[in-house]
Write a protein that binds this DNA or RNA. Structure first.
Lengths: 231, 231
DNA sequence: CGCCGGATTGATCAGTTTCAAGGCATGTGG
DNA sequence: CCACATGCCTTGAAACTGATCAATCCGGCG
């Protein structure tokens, strides 16, 4: 899956560069800094597949620039996006031997990656690294548990409110939120149609809770009222 | 939360008894067998809380007899059950310091338990145990990912079909399935009302896909047709 | 300028929920 | 031993939320 992206720039291998725009306590960096683990960088074009469901886990990834969606499909094409991965986020870390979701670049996206085998090797002797693997998987589990509550029990408006607060927390810069994903992606993340997402956002705009600079550039005007709508 | 169950039998401490009716490759047993880790046994009455969301993680549990539901609540009481835990299943293993779901006994239930602190201690030096913690959390994550797809994108009938196949796989004995949980629990697991669950089951019964011995005693007559309904 | 993908908005439809009634076991007290 | 209460389940009818179908609209770009 790395070789099929022939038009993408060749991966540049370099000796453990620390990420710039990434939280301080960064398990990925800790892992990548361990002896024997080589971090590379790689770019994907819009909508390009990074790995597919069922494929063997060759690498573990960290978003550097851009955004990634991971999802599952039903036979007839219905899609459930499990998570959006933004700069600094680690994805593709599966404990088993194959990926259980498909990962795609949402827009032009750059990732760092480490070989899973070298990770395994280090984890086999380094308890700190083994602990980090557990912590990262546990973080994904926590998100999934919260998201099950959303999918199973929240109303459309509550889902959208939760989504906006999550994105605000994760990617707000200077009071402005620049959503990398389209309405369909949001719908497939929230278990809604794109029309329902659009209607909910319009309603929030009408109520003055948010303002659109453009369809994907949003300023939250009243986080408290949004939080009230969130159940 | 252990001390408040005053009418339950006192925990009996005993030196690492292997579980009888439990899979061979049992990480919990591996963990419980490690030096310094003491396994106890404990029983809970129907609907008794085992731990609450937000409480510190004192123990990790394994169901011996009975069944456990773990769930989250919204402010107004809407409930999402994340998983049912049946004999042999491990639950309550959170990487953080507090539980993120509430656990309750569904009926009269017996569990084995080990102190989380002793687990931590062993994991700090034993890579095998650290790896097992990761594997168990990853298994929960896999289930949560599958369940997000169900909650977000499957129809009522598809949800019920998936549920029946899951329970058939996990607790069918002699072709018969004895569900430990009520219709409301099933609904709160599938993101449906209990009436919708009941209607779907009746419909499956009408179509001859299953037969009720009683409301909770079910025989699947045609797993293939059920799998077809599952999407 | 005109195209195109994405977004919005409107009208109708359908699936699920809600509300309500009744049935069927189980257990308890008279 | 029967009457009755209780909890759980089923079934029906009406209401409602969100989906579907369809028509623009808007902004960016060739």
């Amino acid at each position: 899956m790395l070789t099929q992206t022939i038009t993408a720039p060749a991966a540049k291998v370099f000796p453990v560069p620390r990420a710039q725009n990434v939280p301080a306590a960064d398990e990925f960096s800790v892992i990548a800094t361990c002896a024997g683990v080589i971090a590379s960088e790689f770019s994907y074009r819009k909508d390009e597949e990074i790995y597919g469901e069922g494929e063997p886990c060759e690498y573990v990834y960290q978003v550097v620039r851009g955004a990634v969606r991971t999802y599952k499909l039903l036979n007839d094409g219905r899609r459930q996006i499990g998570a959006f991965h933004l700069p600094g986020d680690v994805f593709g870390l599966d404990a088993g031997s194959t990926h259980r979701l498909t990962a795609e670049a949402i827009g032009e996206t750059t990732v760092r990656l480490v070989k899973r085998r070298s990770l395994e090797a280090v984890a086999g002797s380094n308890v700190q690294v083994a602990h980090n693997l557990w912590t990262m998987t546990a973080r994904d589990l926590r998100h999934a548990e919260d998201h099950m509550l959303l999918l199973g029990r929240k109303t459309a408006m509550e889902k959208v409110a939760t989504f906006l607060l999550e994105m605000d927390r994760r990617l707000a810069k200077a009071g402005m939120m620049a959503l990398p994903m389209c309405r369909r992606d949001i719908g497939d993340y929230l278990g809604l149609t794109l029309e329902t997402v659009s209607r909910a956002l319009s309603q929030l705009s009408d109520q003055g809770i948010l303002v659109f600079s453009s369809a994907r550039q949003i300023v939250l005007r009243n986080r408290q009222r949004l939080a009230d709508l969130d159940a």
